[in-house]
């Protein structure tokens, strides 16, 4: 015990598990550090811009697919079916918007992905079941129209990446 308390290990303090805090780095004092910080923040901003562009492409694809599906249903099905499909597609776009916003907030202002977007299908099913003018099945199909647009968008992006590699 006495020998152990007297023992002082030599060498690097980090090897002994000790954490030494040095003097804080002032970005204004060194132009190289300030330049590195500015370049890293610019890279991060470009990366976030990429996410915003990705969101826009997804919304555009969803709106295009929904418009095509609703316009086809106006010719083939009665007006109640196509209006239900339209309402479901609008709810799907809103759901995707809320999901993208909660994913954008993840790690910055919130630690978990919020579940507020799940209110949209609940309200859709409740509203459709209460209103006799609307049908349940077309509205659910319209709500799920965001999935084919997402698959389409991913396939287009992967094909573009393969073309750019070749």
């Amino acid at each position: 015990m006495l020998a152990e308390s007297q023992y002082q290990p030599a060498g690097d303090p980090l090897d002994r598990g000790e954490l030494t805090v040095g003097t804080p780095i002032d970005a204004n004092s060194s132009p190289e550090i300030a330049e590195k910080l500015a370049s890293s923040s610019a890279v991060q901003k470009n990366s976030l811009d990429e996410y915003v562009h990705f969101q826009r492409r997804i919304f555009f694809a969803t709106i295009v697919v929904s418009a095509i599906a609703v316009s086809i249903s106006f010719f083939w099905f009665p007006i109640s079916t196509s209006s239900s499909l339209l309402i479901g597609a609008l709810c799907g776009v809103l759901y995707l918007r809320l999901l993208a916003r909660s994913v954008g907030k993840l790690g910055k202002s919130s630690k978990t992905v919020s579940k507020i977007q799940l209110v949209i299908p609940v309200l859709l099913v409740l509203g459709v079941s209460k209103l006799p003018q609307l049908d349940l099945l077309p509205s659910l199909l319209g709500f799920l129209l965001y999935k084919p647009s997402l698959i389409l968008q991913v396939m287009l992006e992967s094909s573009n990446q393969e073309e750019s590699k070749h």
Binding site: S40, V43, S47, E50, V103
Partner: peptide, 11 residues
């Protein structure tokens, strides 16, 4: 620097 791609894939 890959934050945009990671967030897009996560979405």
């Amino acid at each position: 620097e890959a934050e945009g791609k990671i967030r897009g894939t996560l979405l």
